[in-house]
Design a protein around this nucleic acid. Structure first.
Lengths: 195, 195
DNA sequence: GTCTATAGATAGATAGAC
DNA sequence: GTCTATCTATCTATAGAC
């Protein structure tokens, strides 16, 4: 029973290290050191590195679900909920500056590794995609909602990537403002500019 | 003198492998196998892995400069030149689908590794940024040109990241069409929609 | 459930014959 | 300029004492 605690500590440590250094460059030794257990003990909890990866992805999914549920509770309109999504960039800018988006960089790395868990990582994007789509469906015809969700997801990914590269605070601020203006245009006009 | 050929073959092989598998996961053995030389001979040409990385980045920069110069020659208007940039996504979609954007994924990986060459990799983005900025400066007031260059760069990065994750051809087509519509709006109105 | 010790593979890198 | 052989470090993973 006490083992659950150590196990979840390992997953939490791996989550952060995979984000900061990447999955492949992170070794068992790195994780063990962070949790303060020996490498040998490690294998009592996890048989393979991929097993940890899977649990890290599931933890990330659970964390995001909790966050999205909270936004749904805390904000009364779809505009405000979508605005909360855009604000992730500002809230986490210190980390994004150094390590990029946790979801975007993981899916990218797993794609290059041709890793079996790639699709599970993509499901983290799907979580946001579907949540955003449900919000947009309250602002525009249902048929357009997913398109807008993907558009916003793409724009936030682009902003994260270039902010990580150039580390220009003004650029990030501008991108956030532009996304909010775009959102305001949709919720006011209830129709997107093009198409 | 013949050594130059082997050296450039090594760089070309490393360029492709770093793109396909990532810098860190690519081993000397991988590169040596691809070039058909022994691991030992390898060190006659390059002392360290970082040395190869630097040369790969310089090669990528040279390749992009050549490409941008060609676009400048081949296209007569800034709109058409910028459109060529947007078309990269369609031209390279097979590779982007599997491995993402070569520049975006490299800068992201080097950021996580906290690698000394990170800034050199970012310079690859700067190459496009400045080129696009010069094109936009012919369409809008100079003060706005860099802002539009970054906006387009970000959008193309976002499209590449999500295409790599979801592998949805319709999404990519839509993003390309949206960028072209955005570009048409700028070159027609000579003023961006927001701000 | 935690540890030490260690296996087996592979990494980056070197030495020296040809 | 290319090779084989090898070094050292580190990786994932296992065995077995406590």
């Amino acid at each position: 029973m006490a083992g659950r605690r150590t196990r979840s500590e390992i997953v939490a440590a791996a989550d952060e290290l995979f984000y900061r250094m990447g999955f492949e460059p992170t070794s068992f030794a790195d994780i063990a050191e962070k949790v303060n257990i020996s490498r040998g003990n490690f294998y009592h909890h996890f048989k393979t590195k991929d097993e940890i990866l899977n649990e890290v992805i599931q933890k990330r999914a659970a964390d995001r679900r909790t966050m999205l549920d909270a936004w749904e509770q805390e904000e009364s309109t779809p505009e405000r909920r979508i605005a909360r999504f855009i604000d992730i960039l500002a809230m986490n800018c210190d980390k994004i500056r150094l390590h990029g988006c946790p979801i975007g960089t993981l899916t990218g790395e797993l794609a290059k590794l041709d890793h079996p868990a790639r699709e599970e990582a993509t499901a983290l994007f799907t979580l946001f995609r579907n949540w955003l789509s449900r919000q947009f469906a309250q602002l525009v015809p249902h048929k357009e909602a997913d398109r807008l969700a993907m558009e916003l997801l793409a724009r936030s990914q682009g902003a994260a990537t270039l902010y990580n590269a150039f580390r220009d605070d003004n650029f990030l601020r501008r991108e956030i403002a532009a996304m909010k203006a775009w959102l305001a245009g949709i919720s006011a006009g209830r129709k997107s500019a093009h198409d």
